[in-house]
């Protein structure tokens, strides 16, 4: 059934083309503000996918992924703000900071199992936030720092939005491709096996500690790259956008709703979450009878998530795949 396989790739290629064309299409349907909504979705997708390679694949559930995002965001922003470092230096420095934080978390993580590890990751961004407040002269504290070098140099608001969108889209697609390749390689197989039974992997002659550290490096590197670009997209360093529990939870919601341990699931989840919330806002503005949606927006999404966890624990994408498989059963694997 090779044409079906090709069909799948054609479908993906079609999606990419659609994403590339969407700024022009959105301008045409007179909804240019959706460009920035999609940009946000791209960033959340990067964060959710970076979480997935650590938590979804190796099963080390991180509740504080904003720690890595924030470490990179703060490093890049502060270097750029105080030392006037250009982005091509400050962003890599931010990524390095995130990876160092990843290693810093990985070492105790090798000794902590299950809930203890998760508890530690939950506390780390809070600790980092305290540091931000203590050194507020330098960090800008709760208000943050403004006037960072922007990602896009385009003139005009809409052109600016478009360039930002393409930066975020490029990052998102690169992340998706790299992580999917890793997930399908032997490294991904080892990660999944560690999630299911670490002792069995060790008994297969594989150093699980090394692979777990690798998962931290990959995850923090990507979260860091996203975080460093994110602050320059906003052109400002605001702790509530990169170092809060809300962000940590949001990216988990996207990943779990889409389907953790799949990479593509978190991507889809991020788009549904960001796009869906914006759509609800627009519906609410449309007529007074729908006004309640404005307030109910987040609540509805959380209820949907709870239902998903109940009825399709593996997430939306895997649920759709198995539904598809039931509707048209694949040919039996030849071998």
């Amino acid at each position: 059934m090779s044409y079906l396989r090709h069909g799948k790739y054609l479908f993906y290629a079609g999606l990419v083309v659609l994403l590339v064309l969407s700024p022009s299409l959105l301008m045409r349907v007179n909804a240019p503000h959706w460009i920035s909504v999609l940009t946000q979705a791209n960033f959340l997708a990067v964060f959710a996918m970076s979480w997935d390679i650590l938590s979804g694949y190796t099963g080390q559930i991180s509740f504080g992924h904003a720690f890595f995002i924030g470490a990179a965001g703060y490093t890049s922003a502060l270097l750029n703000f105080h030392l006037k470092l250009p982005l091509w230096l400050s962003i890599p420095a931010g990524v390095i900071a995130a990876v160092l934080m990843g290693l810093f978390v990985a070492v105790p993580a090798l000794r902590l199992r299950g809930p203890y590890f998760s508890l530690m990751t939950l506390i780390l961004p809070i600790v980092a936030m305290k540091f931000v407040l203590i050194f507020s002269n330098f960090t800008g504290g709760e208000l943050g720092q403004f006037g960072l070098t922007p990602l896009s140099r385009a003139r005009g608001f809409l052109a600016h939005q478009r360039v930002n969108y393409f930066y975020s889209l490029g990052l998102m697609l690169l992340t998706a491709v790299v992580l999917l390749l890793i997930a399908r390689s032997k490294v991904g197989k080892v990660f999944e096996a560690i999630r299911e039974n670490e002792e069995a992997v060790e008994a297969a002659g594989i150093n699980t500690a090394k692979y777990k550290i690798l998962s931290f490096i990959i995850s923090s590197l990507i979260a860091g790259l996203g975080g460093a670009l994110y602050v320059h997209y906003w052109e400002s360093l605001i702790p509530s956008t990169i170092l809060t529990l809300t962000l940590s939870v949001q990216l988990i919601v996207a990943a779990v709703a889409g389907g953790m341990g799949t990479i593509s699931g978190p991507l889809v989840g991020a788009y549904l979450l960001v796009g869906g919330q914006e759509w609800f806002k627009e519906l609410a503005a449309l007529s007074p009878s729908l006004g309640f949606l404005e307030k109910w927006n987040v609540l509805i999404f959380l209820v949907i998530l709870i239902l998903l966890i109940f009825f399709a624990r593996r997430g939306l994408l895997p649920a759709l795949y198995s539904l598809w498989a039931r509707v048209c059963p694949p040919a039996r694997r030849a071998k």
Binding site: K186, K189, E192, A193, E196, A200
Partner: peptide
């Protein structure tokens, strides 16, 4: 040296092939 455990430690969501495959993966990344 390889050991066969008293209790089976298999990966539930992986096929027999994939379960054995883990043992053939090299430790070097």
């Amino acid at each position: 040296i390889a050991r066969v455990f008293q209790l089976s430690r298999f990966l539930r969501h992986k096929t027999v092939f994939e379960n054995i495959e883990i043992s053939t993966i090299q430790n070097r990344i």
